[in-house]
Simulated scan of single mutants.
Amino acid sequence: MKKEIAVIGLGRFGGSIVMELSEMDAEVLVIDTDEARVNEYQEYYSEGIIGDSTDEAMLKSIGIHNYDNVIVAIGDNIQASILTTLILKDLGVEKVTAKAQNAYHGRVLEKIGADIVVHPERDMGRRIAHRLVSSAVVEYLEVSSSHSIIEYSANLKLENKRINDLNLKDKFGISIIAINRDNDIIVSPDGQITILTGDILILIGSDAQLNNFENTMERLK
């Protein structure tokens, strides 16, 4: 059975989600006040509505509570984002994912019941910063407000050494949770495994611990 997902707001963030959901064969409903935007993405959704998402009667009439997930991707109108999220939860939508413009907006969204709050601009900024500071960082993923996962390309200081000998847990407080070796994922690698040239280490730790590791590796180059 296909997932039924509604996306409210068709800016760059909302539009990109709609296109990805289409690739994943989901049933997608889109809502936006701008007719041009609704028309722009018409090949990617099942149903499009030109309307105001703060209109509770409209949301109720389309049965918004029946959708598996509703994504509030409204751009610059923070008031509309908050009010829409509040209405969705009042109407019984099981899972609401909302985009936050800033930290304060995110806290408000959490307070009024958003199940997932995303910070795309902040997260992209952090991802770019990590790549700029450390050339070995392939990818960065925030898992909480204080902990993250990074994909780190093994350098000369790590290659040809066993995981146990690296002692990353004691030295930096971080853990290797997987290794990407030629697109073959080694999950929870044994401490006796030797790091090879080309390995990508998937590391988890606090932001401070990961930053310390990255900076130390850069200095040792």
Results as ranks from 00 to 15, higher is better:
1 M>N: 08
5 I>V: 15
6 A>Q: 01
7 V>C: 00
7 V>P: 04
7 V>H: 05
8 I>Y: 00
9 G>L: 06
12 R>L: 14
13 F>S: 01
16 S>Y: 10
21 L>I: 02
27 E>G: 03
28 V>I: 09
30 V>R: 05
32 D>G: 02
34 D>L: 07
34 D>R: 10
39 N>E: 12
40 E>M: 06
41 Y>F: 11
42 Q>D: 06
43 E>G: 14
44 Y>V: 09
46 S>D: 12
50 I>A: 05
51 G>M: 10
51 G>H: 14
52 D>G: 03
53 S>P: 11
55 D>N: 10
56 E>Q: 13
57 A>S: 14
58 M>V: 09
60 K>I: 12
61 S>D: 05
62 I>S: 11
64 I>H: 13
66 N>H: 08
67 Y>T: 07
68 D>W: 06
69 N>A: 15
72 V>H: 05
73 A>Q: 01
74 I>N: 05
79 Q>N: 02
79 Q>V: 00
80 A>F: 07
81 S>M: 08
84 T>L: 12
84 T>I: 02
85 T>V: 10
86 L>V: 11
87 I>D: 01
91 L>F: 04
92 G>F: 13
95 K>P: 08
95 K>G: 09
96 V>R: 05
101 Q>T: 09
102 N>L: 03
104 Y>E: 02
106 G>I: 03
108 V>Y: 13
108 V>S: 06
111 K>Q: 12
115 D>W: 14
115 D>V: 10
116 I>N: 08
118 V>Y: 01
128 I>Y: 08
130 H>Y: 03
131 R>F: 10
136 A>W: 08
136 A>H: 15
138 V>L: 01
139 E>D: 15
142 E>H: 06
143 V>E: 01
144 S>E: 11
146 S>F: 15
147 H>I: 12
149 I>A: 02
149 I>K: 02
149 I>H: 00
150 I>D: 03
153 S>V: 04
154 A>T: 01
157 K>F: 12
158 L>A: 05
158 L>P: 02
163 I>N: 07
166 L>S: 10
167 N>Y: 06
168 L>G: 02
174 I>V: 15
176 I>F: 08
179 I>Y: 09
179 I>M: 10
186 I>R: 04
189 P>S: 09
192 Q>G: 09
192 Q>L: 13
193 I>P: 11
195 I>C: 08
195 I>M: 07
196 L>K: 15
197 T>Y: 10
199 D>G: 04
201 L>V: 07
201 L>Y: 05
202 I>R: 07
202 I>C: 09
207 D>N: 14
208 A>W: 00
213 F>V: 04
216 T>K: 02
218 E>D: 08
221 K>Y: 01
221 K>S: 00
